[in-house]
């Protein structure tokens, strides 16, 4: 169930979105849940729906960007905007415009290479540029370091944590774990993905696929004699939508 300012949001109100619209499918899933999704204002709800939609759109865009997969030691970035850290992360150069630097990864993907976790942060930042607009994004995020789940902006930290949720929606960051991974290829220890809806997930290096197909790939990269199969964790990383919505206020 969804409540806004303490009152139930009737499903009839969802009609402002077309059937098949991602926002409508998120609303319907929240409404069908036994858990109450409470929003203080209509703007809070709209912000979450917009950010979820833009996260899914950014995942599709990054998938088509040509961004290459590489282990951190072979990571690469466009030196016009980013300097490489010793860990294999991308550090926004002083003087570089944050929004342009993020958007460059989407438009100039082949200049970049990284692992799957960093790609999740790129997706989130790409979505935030869209929902805030470039000028506000630049004010809000003047310093960016993209490296796995390290050095996160405290306002985005919950996206890097995995918590069990009563339900999962498009725009969530999920994780396919591969506990018995082949130690020669630890990059197959798990796949960070964005839930796209319709049973599909985007994972960097693995592309857009359904769960079964991702699990097959992970299971092919297990240690000899492995007895535990890869699985989709019952958890998600989710940005603090309400906190981020407050930053969108005029």
């Amino acid at each position: 169930m969804i409540t806004v300012a303490g009152k139930r949001l009737e499903p009839a109100r969802f009609s402002e979105y077309a059937d098949g619209d991602l926002k409508k499918s998120v609303l319907s899933a929240m409404d069908a849940s036994s858990r109450v999704y409470a929003f203080a204002t209509p703007e809070q709800l709209k912000f979450e729906l917009s950010l979820r939609q833009e996260t899914v759109a950014a995942a599709h865009l990054l998938d088509r960007s040509g961004l290459r997969f590489a282990v951190f030691r072979h990571a690469a970035s466009n030196p016009a905007y980013w300097s490489m850290t010793r860990e294999g992360g991308f550090l926004l150069k002083s003087g570089a415009e944050p929004a342009k630097a993020i958007l460059d990864i989407f438009s100039n993907g082949s200049a970049y290479a990284t692992e799957c976790a960093t790609a999740m942060m790129i997706v989130l930042y790409g979505a935030l540029v869209k929902v805030y607009g470039e000028a506000r994004f630049n004010r809000l995020f003047p310093k960016i370091e993209l490296m796995n789940w390290h050095h996160l902006d405290p306002r985005l930290e919950s996206f890097g944590k995995m918590d069990r949720m009563p339900g999962y929606f498009p725009g969530d960051r999920r994780y396919f774990a591969n506990p018995d991974v082949d130690p020669i290829t630890p990059q197959w220890q798990g796949e960070n993905v964005i839930e796209l809806g319709g049973g599909l997930f985007y994972g960097h290096g693995i592309g857009i696929r359904n769960a079964e197909s991702i699990l097959r790939s992970l299971n092919r990269n297990r240690a000899e004699g492995a007895d535990q199969a890869a699985y989709l964790m019952d958890a998600a990383g989710r940005p603090e939508y309400k906190r981020l919505a407050a930053l969108a206020a005029p």
Binding site: A117, W149, H150, G160, K161, M162, A177, Q189, N192, G237
Partner: peptide, 10 residues
Amino acid sequence: TGESFNASCK
């Protein structure tokens, strides 16, 4: 638990 820095910041 099977958790690591690949899945989580904590």
